[in-house]
């Protein structure tokens, strides 16, 4: 039992991170119908900037939490700038072009960001300085650290905040309008250039937060980390229904749980015939099943109707 609880906790922590990154994909897709493949790299830049700033301040004598918050602020600012620039340089000129063109530039931007990061931060791995006070807690025989609790809570709060922003504010209404029909929204007086820029900036701020969480939880950052994370988060977004905020969250948490339970039990369930290396196979099998029966993802229907 305690092992099962532990696997659920593992899945929740992993899933919260996936969900936070998936939100970035889904927001951009919801508004522009574009898959921003550079989003994983923005997460990486967030992690790198945060670690750099935190390392600089590590000896300053400030409390750990304050240093991390300063790191997060710096990372968010950097990521917002990167997100804004990406949209301006790589996507805006192609807004009227066929859908494939911005997709290719997205992949290009991703490669450029990766290599720039390699030049700036080098090929070595960076470790997260151990400045956060971590304590371990026992829940039903399973272990969870205070950092992991914080990750799940902050991710949940952030997602709730984003839902409020999109569904309860003027900006959110403008975003939804742009998502439904940019041309009509513009006629109604919505400055869609500004809305799209803001979407990128908000998504990038979330990426900075996700980057900080990943690097703090695994105490590792590397110029290459965004690729796999981005791919997994993209999968999560598709699983939940890309373009839908609740779907991204659901997809992220589900993917985390599936991976965790898959790796934990698949070996025993099949009598050792399939091992934990089938964890990804298992996750993608679930994805395929979902797409066969619900082509627009678990909760993707609403967006399709609306748009």
């Amino acid at each position: 039992m305690d092992i099962f609880v532990q696997q659920i906790i593992n899945g929740l922590v992993l899933g919260s991170i996936y969900a936070l990154v998936a939100l970035g994909y889904t927001m951009v897709y919801g508004i522009m119908g574009l898959i921003n493949f550079a989003h994983g790299e923005v997460v990486m830049i967030g992690a790198m900037v945060a670690i750099t700033v935190i390392k600089l301040l590590a000896d300053s004598g400030l409390p750990g939490v304050v240093i991390v918050l300063i790191g997060l602020f710096a990372a968010a600012v950097a990521c917002m700038a990167v997100g804004f620039t990406i949209e301006r340089v790589a996507y805006r000129p192609l807004r009227k072009a066929p859908k494939l063109a911005p997709l290719i530039t997205a992949i290009g931007v991703s490669i450029v960001l990766q290599n720039v990061a390699m030049l700036v931060w080098g090929r070595n791995y960076h470790s997260f300085p151990p400045i956060l006070p971590t304590s371990q807690h026992e829940i039903l025989g399973a272990t969870i650290t205070s950092l992991q609790v914080a990750i799940v809570l902050i991710a949940a709060l952030t997602m709730a905040g984003l839902m409020l922003l999109v569904h309860r504010t003027r900006l959110g209404r403008a975003m939804r309008a742009t998502s439904e029909n940019p041309a009509i929204a513009q006629l109604m007086g919505v400055d869609i250039d500004r809305i799209i820029s803001l979407t990128f900036v908000i998504g990038s701020a979330l990426a900075a937060l996700a980057g900080l969480m990943v690097s703090a939880n695994y105490s590792i950052a590397h110029y290459y980390m965004g690729f796999i994370l981005g791919l997994k988060a993209f999968t999560a977004a598709v699983l939940g229904g890309i373009g839908n905020l609740a779907g991204a969250m659901l997809g992220g948490i589900l993917l985390g749980l599936i991976e965790s339970l898959g790796a934990g039990y698949i070996g025993d369930l099949t009598g050792g015939f399939l091992g934990s290396h089938y964890q990804d196979v298992f996750a993608f099998f679930v994805l395929i099943c979902v797409l066969v029966f619900r082509p627009s993802g678990l909760v993707g229907e609403k967006v399709a109707e609306r748009a």
Partner: peptide
């Protein structure tokens, strides 16, 4: 990979 929690739990 960076996350090994599942296999380590097992």
């Amino acid at each position: 990979a960076t996350d090994f929690a599942a296999i380590l739990t097992k």
